[in-house]
Design a protein around this nucleic acid. Structure first.
Length: 357
RNA sequence: CCUCCCAUAGCUCAUUGGUAGAGCAGGCGGUUGUAGCCCGCUGUGGCCCAGUUCGAUUCUGGGUGGGGGGACCA
């Protein structure tokens, strides 16, 4: 596969590449660069965790990237997720792995790494301190939004270690590409700055879009605050579709979603079509009553978008279509967790855990 | 170890020695072929233990949790 083809596949899901030129150089010189994304184990898996991640991974594996899925158990601990109980966090991590497998992620091709395992050594902490030395307290404070904390929220000393540790991960795992969500860009930018200062290998950042919650765009003072307030969040059930939702729950949630006729901006349903549905299927068929024009089929997102913004497709019909397609994608995963004994046990156990923010 | 402040609804907060409200969020309904907007309706609550009192959410003491300051180490 030639370099431009690779770039194209990355751009298919990337909202931002820092920088595209560096990525091009990387692909030229290294057929198998290493990328990663990290997750704090906690809570029940939403669709962006399962479906979107799986779709993005497919593209990355295609271009020869070696991907690490990083289970940030100690980060969840610092951030007081699941009561800061490492055993519960471990359990949630095992459940996450099971979700990925159920979503068709081949854990032989994709490496699963636990934070606990790479932190076990003085080398890791030596890097953390060298990095911390290069970060001003003010800059570090601004970066704490990567924990999903609002700026100004009370933090513990432990939480102040979070940004330099996340930066350490990048260098310690010898990452070429940080392929995380836009909400993590402060950490990756910090890593790039630190790399310059310490003359370490500078990672490239490829950030994917953060999916809107069902309630749509919640405008705040800054773009970052808007993104944080608007995102689909597993800790906010009314914003979120989970990999375990039944068809009835799914229909109810989709039906209640924000969806102004003809409007693309801030429309969560169009986002789900663009980022999830059309990344997984070839064509989307929508059942529509005869009096509104009868059934209709879209071959790609662009066709659907055109129809919607020109009011050729009504929100209610879009909703029916989205619910049906998402159901097709969620169903096998939901059923895996109902039928597989081990998976079911894991899910039940994680469901019982008290989510703490 | 000492000391001060705080603890009321999901959140932010108000009020009162006679068992409590507001805003936002949520739920329900109306209006739109969806949702939102708009309009109407609506739920839940005083951290724990003891004391004073006819009566404590309110006053006092203790506990617990959170936050600030200080002592010791220096």
């Amino acid at each position: 596969m030639d370099v431009e083809e690779k770039i194209k596949l990355i751009k298919e899901f990337a909202q931002e590449i820092v920088t595209e030129e560096e990525l091009r150089e990387l692909f030229k010189n290294n057929p198998h660069p290493v990328a990663y994304d990290g997750f704090e184990p906690s809570g029940i898996a939403p669709i962006h965790f399962g479906l979107l991640r799986a779709a993005n991974l497919k593209n990355m594996l295609k271009v020869g990237i070696k991907f690490k899925l990083y289970l940030a158990d100690y980060f969840a601990f610092i951030n007081n997720k699941l009561g800061g109980d490492l055993e519960n966090i471990r359990l949630a991590g095992e459940y996450f792995i099971e979700v990925w497998k159920a979503c068709g992620i081949d854990t032989k091709k994709v490496e699963v790494v636990w934070a606990k395992d790479i932190m076990d050594g003085i080398d890791y902490w030596d890097k953390t301190l060298r990095i911390a030395k290069e970060i001003s307290l003010e800059r570090n404070m601004r970066a704490t939004t990567i924990m999903g904390r609002k700026q100004g929220e009370k933090l513990s000393m432990g939480q102040l270690f979070y940004p330099p540790m996340q930066v350490t991960d990048i260098f310690h795992m010898d990452i070429d590409i940080c392929q995380l969500g836009m909400d993590q860009r402060r950490a990756n930018m910090l890593a790039r700055d630190v790399a310059d200062k310490l003359k370490w290998k500078k990672p490239i950042a490829v950030h994917h879009h953060i999916l809107l919650g069902l309630q749509g765009l919640q405008k705040k003072g800054t773009d970052e605050e808007t993104m944080m307030a608007s995102k689909m969040s597993k800790s906010d059930p009314k914003s979120c579709i989970y990999m375990h939702d039944t068809y009835d729950e799914l229909k109810k949630k989709i039906n209640g979603a924000f969806c102004p006729e003809g409007q693309e901006e801030g429309n969560p349903l169009l986002e789900y079509c663009k980022h999830i549905i059309f990344r997984n299927i070839k064509a989307m068929k929508i059942k529509r009553p005869e009096k509104f024009g009868g059934n209709i089929e879209f071959k790609n997102y662009e066709e659907l978008r055109e129809a919607f913004v020109n009011k050729k497709l009504h929100p209610m019909d879009l909703k029916v279509g989205v619910a049906e397609e998402l159901e097709k994608l969620i169903k096998p995963v939901r059923e895996h967790f109902e039928n597989d004994k081990r998976a079911k046990k894991l899910y039940e156990a994680v469901k019982k855990l008290k989510i703490t923010r």
